[in-house]
Computed example of a mutant assay.
Amino acid sequence: MSDHENASEMVQAEALNPTSADGGQQTLTLDGRVYPMEALPADAVVVLNDLIRCENELNEHRFRLRQLASAQQSMTVTLTQLITAAGLEPIATVDGAQVDAAQSEDEAA
């Protein structure tokens, strides 16, 4: 993982978790430094909100990808069961090592 990715992850993890200091003041931790939230300039608040939205969307997409991967695995199992139930036999393997007798005879002729 590159330094940029590490820094990005740290910023996201820290920036997206504003905390309350002892006096009830919300703070933002960024690059190991703590800032009071009310002191942030307006444009920094906009960027922080955008960062939070991006993180939320990224998490939603990660969740959707996990759903799709699970569905794909389930469909693969179902397809395998349907092929087996139909009594189909493979005519070859991906590397071509296993070929059924009928196909071998056709190739020899």
Rank of each mutant, 00 (worst) to 15 (best):
G24M: 05
A15M: 00
T93Q: 10
E38P: 14
Q26R: 13
L16A: 09
C54W: 00
A13M: 10
A13L: 03
V99Y: 04
T27F: 00
A7D: 13
E9S: 07
R64E: 03
Q98V: 15
L65G: 06
E55T: 03
Q67A: 03
L30F: 05
P90T: 06
L48R: 02
H4V: 15
D95N: 13
A97L: 10
D106H: 11
N6V: 15
S8G: 05
A39G: 01
A86G: 03
R66I: 01
P36F: 09
V77W: 14
E38R: 13
R64W: 06
A71P: 04
P41A: 09
T76W: 03
L79V: 09
H61M: 11
R62Q: 08
E9L: 03
G23Y: 08
R62E: 00
E5W: 03
S104C: 10
A13I: 04
A102L: 09
Q26W: 09
L58T: 02
T84P: 08
M75I: 00
L40Q: 07
G87I: 07
I83K: 04
D106F: 14
A86R: 13
N59C: 03
E57W: 04
Q67I: 05
L51A: 04
N49A: 13
T84G: 10
V99P: 01
S74C: 10
E107C: 06
A21D: 15
V99N: 01
D95F: 01
T80Q: 08
G24Q: 04
E107Q: 12
D43A: 10
R53M: 08
H4T: 15
M75S: 09
E55L: 02
M10E: 10
P18N: 06
N17V: 00
G24H: 01
D100S: 12
A85V: 11
D43C: 05
P41T: 03
A85Y: 12
Y35F: 15
E38M: 13
Q73I: 04
P36K: 09
L82V: 04
R64Y: 05
V46M: 10
S70V: 00
D100I: 13
V45W: 03
T78I: 15
D100R: 09
A44M: 13
M37I: 08
V11H: 03
A44V: 07
G32K: 01
M37V: 05
L68K: 09
Q25L: 11
Q103P: 02
Q81W: 11
